[in-house]
């Protein structure tokens, strides 16, 4: 029986094994490859999506569990906060290899939505689950603060 999930506002019907992690459903079935694989065990945050605006690790949600959830991926991210974060990321040239950055941007948007004026400690907490092997942490931090400023924070 197909599983129905809602991704970026669209209802999608999927025949994949219901135990398949959402990560691979997004990437392989829906070709939404902006969501990245980094570890598969909830350690790196490269696979971060939003479920009702909350950052979640898509490698840890099965297709079965995703049924009925409203999922937003980096491709579907929109709104004022997302725009501010993208602007901040571009103006500070946060990215290096870029592979972790979908996850970082998802984490940044979720943080600023929940806390428009995050402190450095808030940033530490929000981002400690998002590994960047290029160690762009300095600029991610600056990017979050810059995004916050743009939003009037």
């Amino acid at each position: 029986m197909p599983t129905i999930i809602t991704v970026n506002g669209e209802r999608r019907s999927l025949d994949a094994d219901p135990e398949t992690p959402l990560l691979w459903v997004l990437r392989d079935e829906l070709e939404l490859t902006g969501t990245k694989f980094g570890c598969g065990i909830a350690q790196c945050g490269a696979c971060t999506v939003h479920v009702k605006g909350e950052p979640q690790r898509s490698c840890q949600i099965t297709l079965k569990d995703a049924a009925g959830l409203e999922i937003t991926t980096i491709e579907g991210l929109s709104g004022k906060v997302a725009e501010a974060v993208r602007k901040a990321w571009a103006s500070l040239d946060v990215v290096q290899c870029g592979y972790c950055q979908s996850g970082q941007v998802m984490a940044a948007v979720a943080l600023l939505q929940a806390k428009p004026k995050p402190t450095d400690a808030d940033i530490d907490t929000a981002f400690d689950g998002n590994i960047c092997r290029c160690n762009t942490y300095t600029r991610i931090r600056a990017g979050v603060h810059a995004g916050s400023k743009m939003l009037g924070g």
Binding site: L32, T73, I74, E75, W89, A90, S91, V94, V95
Partner: peptide, 14 residues
């Protein structure tokens, strides 16, 4: 600016 900043922060870089 880097040439890859935008594509790498909106998920489109392949």
């Amino acid at each position: 600016p880097r040439v890859d900043s935008v594509a790498k922060s909106n998920g489109t870089a392949k």
